[in-house]
Amino acid sequence: MSALNLRLSRWAERLPSLRPSLANLRGWAVPLALLLGLETLVRSGILPAHQMPAPTQVAQTLFHLAVSGELLRHINASLLRVAGGFLIGAGLAIVIGTWVGLSRRAEAYLEPTFQALRAIPSLAWVPLLLLWLGIDETPKVVLIALGAFFPVYLALLAGIRNIDRKLVEVGQLYQLSRFALVRRILLPAALPNLFTGLRGALSLSWMFLVAAELIAATRGLGYLLSDGRETSRPDLVIAAILLLAVLGKLSDSLLKYWETRALSWRDSYQGGEN
């Protein structure tokens, strides 16, 4: 009886560690149900295969692209563009957002212009960037950087302006320099908002990638979308969309992991079980 109790206690100790894996499995329920439903509808003839290919056909297309080496080239091109644009846009947004958050004078000069630029659709930048920068990699990276800039800038500005005034007064009481005030009080207090902006910017970077790769690109996931449309291959279009979704999710999960590590000091509400 004691041996049985010992085993039960060990299983009880392991149950909390199993909860994250069970939560991850729940996340697969909706995608798998959608794939199974689409496969059934296409195979039964309810959905025409020339408009919506079966998931198995999309899997075959991805397999052929992977075997030929073409898939890796497209993914590498898109990843490099997103990484470059995101780092440039987010880096500039952190610097300028901090400056505007600290200075009312800078806000008076820059905020109206930034709000006007933010309202410009991504595709509206394409012809201007082509005229200015040609059809090389530069306009693609710049377009993605534009998409990444504004979510980080707005989130960081809101985070700094929503910091409790008493924290700033404590820093001034201890005679912290302006740089020390930013590094030790303002940026740590604004980190939750900053990570929210970074995740939104990363998502927009993948969206702007498609517009960027319509600029005379010969490789990349956006090019695959365009190629599938021009050759009337819906399987290629769906394959490119799935790859964008998977890569976007993986990059967001990586950023979310860094967010969890950086904000481990927070004792925030995580939601209920139901």
Score class of each variant (00 low, 15 high):
Val82Gly: 03
Tyr153Ala: 01
Phe208Trp: 15
Leu242Ser: 01
Leu25Gln: 14
Glu13Tyr: 08
Val100Arg: 08
Leu131Gly: 03
Met1Lys: 10
Arg73Glu: 12
Leu65Phe: 08
Ile241Arg: 06
Ser264Glu: 12
Arg118Trp: 06
Gly271Asp: 11
Ile215Cys: 03
Ser103Pro: 01
Pro48Val: 02
Thr98Gly: 13
Arg219Ser: 02
Leu47Gln: 03
Leu242Glu: 03
Phe208Pro: 04
Gly27Tyr: 15
Ser44Tyr: 14
Asp267Met: 08
Ser78Arg: 07
Ser253Trp: 13
Tyr269Glu: 13
His50Thr: 10
Ala106Ser: 15
Leu8Met: 12
Trp28Gln: 04
Gly200Val: 07
Ala148Asp: 15
Glu273Pro: 08
Ala49His: 03
Ser251Phe: 13
Arg161Pro: 00
Tyr269Asp: 13
Leu87Phe: 14
Ala211Arg: 05
Thr138Val: 01
Leu87Asp: 11
Ile94Met: 02
Gly91Arg: 04
Ala158Lys: 08
Leu72Trp: 15
Ala29Val: 13
Arg14Pro: 04
Ser203His: 12
Gln172Asn: 13
Val152Gln: 12
Glu169Asp: 14
Arg161Ser: 01
His50Leu: 09
Glu259Ser: 00
Leu38Trp: 15
Gly134Leu: 10
Leu92Val: 04
Leu8Gly: 01
Ala23Met: 12
Val100Thr: 07
Pro121Asp: 05
Leu4Ser: 13
Tyr269Ala: 07
Phe179Tyr: 12
Leu186Gly: 01
Leu186His: 00
Ala12Lys: 09
Met1Leu: 14
Val30His: 09
Phe195Asp: 02
Leu181Ala: 07
Ile88Trp: 04
Pro127Leu: 06
Ser122Leu: 06
Pro31Asn: 03
Leu167Phe: 15
Arg105Asp: 14
Lys256Phe: 10
His50Asn: 12
Ser2Tyr: 15
Arg104Leu: 08
Arg14Thr: 06
Leu117Met: 13
Ser264Leu: 07
Leu38Cys: 09
Asn5Phe: 15
Ala49Tyr: 07
Leu131Trp: 12
Leu156Asp: 02
Arg104Ala: 09
Ser251Gly: 08
Asp235Ala: 03
Glu111Thr: 06
Ala145Asp: 06
Glu107Trp: 11
Phe114Ala: 00
Ala245Ile: 09
Leu176Ile: 08
Trp28Cys: 04
Gly37Leu: 14
Gly97Ala: 05
Gly91Gln: 05
Leu62Cys: 07
Arg266Met: 12
Ser122Lys: 02
Asp235Tyr: 05
Leu250Pro: 00
Gly84Gln: 10
Leu62Phe: 09
Tyr153Ser: 00
Asp136Gly: 08
Ser103Asp: 08
Glu107Phe: 09
Gly228Tyr: 12
Gly45Asn: 01
Leu72Tyr: 13
Ser68Tyr: 11
Gly97Ile: 04
Asp227Thr: 08
Met207Tyr: 11
Gln115His: 05
Ala239Arg: 06
Asn24Cys: 11
Leu123Cys: 02
Pro16Phe: 05
